[in-house]
């Protein structure tokens, strides 16, 4: 659902980071915000609970250069991961052009990851979208933890469609930009 403005020659796209609670979605956005120059990124807005958990969404606008003479502007959003905030999660997905599913690599989070992916599929269906109709990629976060499941196990559990997947430690930035670059490329490829 990109917005293409021929008058200002800009393309606006919306990317949503989805996944379980405490999986590292907000950390991804915070790292991007911290690393990029203020000339190409806007201020990050976070709607949090008192204990710093995402209540509604985080929002970060970025300017990612030009494609075919159009400036590409991306809005990054996260959703609240906790199960009870599904209504908010569904609202944030409205109009998404691409999704990064942030899976928590810890072996004990495997079931939660699978359930969250299923939940994402159900919420997409409300907007008449499927995992085959929208560009999405996987990020296996927290790869540095000792209890991280193997990539084979994660791929088997999460990636039956064979979408691009990336390893990350969002806390120290590993894989964060690789993921962002991959999803923005997937989204723009759909438009050209």
């Amino acid at each position: 659902m990109a917005l293409i403005n021929y008058s200002s020659r800009e393309i606006h796209c919306k990317i949503v980071y989805y996944g379980t609670g405490l999986g590292g979605k907000t950390t991804n956005l915070e790292y991007v915000h911290k690393q990029l120059s203020p000339t190409i990124r806007g201020e990050m807005v976070s709607l949090n609970t008192a204990n710093e958990r995402t209540l509604f969404f985080d929002f970060l606008p970025l300017d990612l250069g030009s494609v075919q003479g159009f400036r590409t502007k991306f809005s990054l959003y996260t959703v609240p991961g906790q199960v009870e905030y599904n209504a908010s999660r569904k609202l944030v997905l409205n109009g998404a052009d691409g999704i990064v599913f942030v899976a928590d690599s810890q072996i004990e989070k495997m079931q939660e990851n699978v359930e969250s992916l299923k939940n994402m599929e159900e919420n997409l269906a409300e907007y008449n979208m499927t995992l085959d109709s929208i560009p999405w990629i996987l990020q296996y976060n927290k790869r540095d933890l000792p209890n991280a499941a193997s990539m084979d196990e994660l791929e088997r559990a999460m990636n039956s469609r064979g979408v691009p997947s990336y390893e990350a430690c969002a806390y120290d930035g590993q894989g964060v930009f690789q993921t962002l670059k991959a999803i923005s490329k997937e989204v723009l490829n759909r438009l050209t």
């Binding site: 659902m1 990109a2 917005l3 293409i4 021929y6 075919q68 159009f70 759909r190 438009l191 050209t192």
Partner: peptide, 12 residues
Amino acid sequence: MLNPQLTSLIVT
């Protein structure tokens, strides 16, 4: 060439 078929709003 941009493909308008995959977009929802094209501002002219």
